[in-house]
Design a protein around this nucleic acid. Sequence first.
DNA 1: AAATTTTAGTTGTTCAGTTAACTAATCATA
DNA 2: TATGATTAGTTAACTGAACAACTAAAATTT
Lengths: 151, 151
Amino acid sequence: MNRQADFSKNKKIAHLLGHYINDTGRNMVRTLQQNFRKAGYGVTAEQWFVLVWLFDKDGRTQQELCDLTYKDKPSITRILNNLEKTKLIIRTEHPADGRSKIIYLTEKCKEIERPLLEIADQTQLAAIKGLSKMEIAECKRMLGIITNNLL
Amino acid sequence: MNRQADFSKNKKIAHLLGHYINDTGRNMVRTLQQNFRKAGYGVTAEQWFVLVWLFDKDGRTQQELCDLTYKDKPSITRILNNLEKTKLIIRTEHPADGRSKIIYLTEKCKEIERPLLEIADQTQLAAIKGLSKMEIAECKRMLGIITNNLL
DNA sequence: AAATTTTAGTTGTTCAGTTAACTAATCATA
DNA sequence: TATGATTAGTTAACTGAACAACTAAAATTT
């Protein structure tokens, strides 16, 4: 793919902010996944974004994971299917609510939490090199405004 | 899907900037596509990001479109396949280079340029409401820095 | 209590991104 | 000029996103 980042070439074409945001996000996500892979972990970035919340607190429902990751239900279903295939999570039945399922990490998954976290941290650190904490906060604030505008 | 934008809920989890950027970009892209669809145009956002550069200048090669859109070759191949199916572009052979193909817009496509552009403009305008031009420029600058850091 | 509505999760289809392997044409070079 | 490397584009497999339609189990309403 093509990753040069001269977003100023769109002098005539000013309708592409969404494209640039999207592209930058994909660059980060792809790099993270490549770094996982280089280190020998076959975890996708999207799987990671789900696992993060399970490391934070185990035993959540799929709906909770939807809310936390901003992903829709079919996406969560499929990401969990793949995590189940690789034996990183298990689905169990909710004791009180027959519709819900509760997701638990396997031991195998808990063992790789630290190395994955290390890779994620380093990747993010490399990505934001040259940006101050204030700039990052500004960036997040603007992203939040844009998303809210679209609700 | 879930589009609430309170990115501050990650107090404990600070590794998710890429996820937030990615998510915001997808929100913009999805909204654009929905707006095209509501107006009766079956053009995807990714198709639009390619068409934009053909409206700018017709008769480009696929490689040029890769460079301009930051997409890789398989993606461009498939996006053009779909644009060809819906008769919005045609592929022709390069007169001098047997490997290349030159992409032209059809009349059908030229006819919908203005309405699509109108929708794209309005969508972007709605998305950035509340942000100054300087903030937008800042945002683009930071996205460029991040992408360059990842090269 | 029965009927309706809402909620949790799954499935199917289409589209695009990522990676790898591939074909065919051109370019470089020895 | 013949060989090897590069370039343009395609194909295939896997993953996830978007959207719609679906099942089954609550929750709500009447």
